[in-house]
Nucleic acid binder design. Structure first.
Lengths: 355, 355
DNA sequence: CATGGAGAGTAAACCGATTTATTTCTCGAT
DNA sequence: ATCGAGAAATAAATCGGTTTACTCTCCATG
């Protein structure tokens, strides 16, 4: 059974003794400081190999103000989007020689604030926060109070205190407006599964603004329900109950993956055909969307680019002496036009569906 | 800008000074040790509030052999299944007063071994490992060498060194066999998106054994492709190219979520109707499966139960003195019969489709 | 030849907690 | 008043590293 032959792990002092030098010298060798005779350095490296020595990363950072750790707080670990984001963050952080610790706020602002404080307890060098709400939420506020080094990702907009990295939600949503208005739609439903996320609000605004520029007459209904799944389902159902026949929108733009699934489910339940009766565009792509029938037109977020950017911006602050005003980065999205919307660009159909 | 008013955080000594007691006494109060005069305890608590003191959890554990941290290593953070698992693990660990650090091996055994060693560097109290391969993989081997305390989850079977917690893959797959054989299917394709995962192999064996018990004549094709997505897609395509007409299987059992998506995609591409031409059952449920059309019959894994069990088993080892032989826990799955298979239990159809 | 500066090495302090070993306090019994 | 036992408090050691401050050599320079 494991745990029985537990001879204590070798420490830096054991290595020092084995190599016949002091612990300070071993420390120098390990961190690549130059002023060590190559003969001694060699002996140290041998001792390390001999004893199977591995440094304790926590003890190593104890004397410093901050440790070589980057904290990450995301609202949710069950969604593939944040999963991919975290994977990217982890890779980038490790490449830079940092450890990464991840925690999920589970869409709770209170927990978010707790987790942020916990990151400070761990003396992380910096934190990457995907806020539950926005740069004005509890987590960001707490970080300001604690004077933490951080980057806000995804659900935030430009901020006076923190660098931000987001998908270009506004531009991508405007492109969706181009597509749908271009197809002749003049009555469109915007659906969001949460009203508090900054990203969702930006998508909504980006779409609305462009759509109204293209045609001031366009009718846009918005439905932002709260987080309880059943309430949301009910709200969608009620909406469609009240908008039948000529009142029914001819297209839906769902503002999150969750939202897309919800809308899809309700459209199916009512027997509405996609795209013939209603066209559907979703923000945030998922692997099933290209396989389901009809396949779903969606905006794909540049998750890898966001992760990489977030870490590089944070490292610049940490290692570059925290100088310069906070920056704000928008990473471009990609639109994947599939069967559920945008493929019938036959002009004749535009009149058919228009107004 | 944050980071400017960085007065150093209060330490336990600051609190001691403010309360007019020694650091040792503060430590006692903080950990709830009884032998402190209530008057002093009160003063300490006030000082803590006054100075906004928060303990450094890492320094706190420095003197102990192990720290109050549980490590988790999973093969993948982008899949909702492991995402949900990690969320559950995190919750359970925190409830027990442990911190949790998560890392993704990204389906690489080499990285898995590295991560396991890194967990040991962090002096975690215990580790929860979802192996890339199985209890014989590199991660588990490394843990044995290092004498670590650990629980193996999901892709493992009973082991001499470690407790294991898995879904009851065998029983659930047998139930799928009951369903498909009961529906009259006598030619079934089993598809897995990875051959090295222990869970996938167990599902395959569980199905095959039951199916052959029910009808020794049954024809079962198995297709376990390797991990490169394009290779897999090609393998499926080739299989169906070579099995048309009477040679085509009447049902497919896909052994993982990835696999389900892959098979679904290929069936659609060929214009095969589900379930009329081919029935489909997938192992591992996903939210889109009940919304897509046709909705997909799937085996839902008891992810919350697995997470909770894994942590409680690990804590029992850690805090219960590591006594008793390693245990092996099977959590029951649920079958969600939807449109893609199992709904046509009209006996007359059995003959139609049989043999 | 004295001086000084660079290079190499190390003892000891330090980081922020816990634990041990010891001292001090309290109070009742003799 | 004295003693002793147990409770409460604390100084100091400890964990495993890093950093500081100091020593010691060696060699070039005035």
């Amino acid at each position: 059974m494991p745990g029985e032959d537990k001879q204590r792990r070798a420490t830096i002092h054991d290595v020092a003794r084995a190599a016949g030098v002091s612990a300070a010298t071993v420390s120098k060798v390990l961190r690549g400081v130059a002023s060590v005779r190559s003969e001694n350095a060699q002996r140290v490296r041998e001792a390390v190999r001999e004893l199977d020595y591995r440094m304790d990363p926590l003890a190593a950072g104890l004397r410093h103000e901050q440790r070589r750790i980057i904290g990450a707080v995301v609202p949710d670990l069950e969604s593939p989007f944040f999963g991919a984001l975290v994977t990217g963050l982890e890779r980038a952080a490790e490449e830079a020689g940092y450890h990464m610790i991840v925690a999920s706020s589970r869409e709770s602002e209170e927990r978010e604030s707790d987790l942020v404080a916990r990151m400070a307890d761990w003396r992380v060098a910096g934190t990457i926060l995907v806020p539950v709400r926005s740069e004005r939420g509890e987590g960001a506020t707490r970080m300001r109070e604690l004077g933490m080094q951080a980057v806000l990702v995804d659900r935030a907009s430009a901020d006076d205190d923190f660098d931000t990295v987001t998908a270009d939600n506004s531009e991508a949503s405007a492109k969706v407006a181009d597509l749908l208005i271009g197809q002749g739609h003049r009555h469109i439903l915007l659906h969001g599964a949460t009203r508090i996320s900054k990203a969702v609000r930006t998508r909504l605004d980006g779409f609305t603004e462009r759509a109204q520029t293209l045609d001031p007459q366009v009718r846009i209904d918005t439905l932002l329900s709260d987080d309880d799944p059943e309430t949301q389902r009910g709200a969608v159902r009620t909406y469609f109950d009240g908008h039948t026949g000529a009142e029914r929108p001819t297209a839906v733009f769902s503002l999150s993956q969750h939202s897309t699934l919800l809308v899809l489910s309700e459209l199916r339940r009512r027997g509405l055909r996609i795209p013939q009766d209603v066209e559907l565009v979703g923000f945030d792509d998922a692997d099933w969307m290209q396989t389901t029938w009809p396949s779903i037109t969606a905006v794909a977020q540049p998750v890898a680019a966001m992760a990489e950017r977030a870490v590089s911006v944070l490292l610049e602050r940490i290692e570059g002496g925290n100088k310069g005003a906070p920056t704000s980065h928008l990473e471009p999205c990609t639109m994947l036009v599939r069967e559920s919307a945008g493929q019938m660009n036959d002009p004749s159909r535009q009149y058919e569906r228009g107004g």
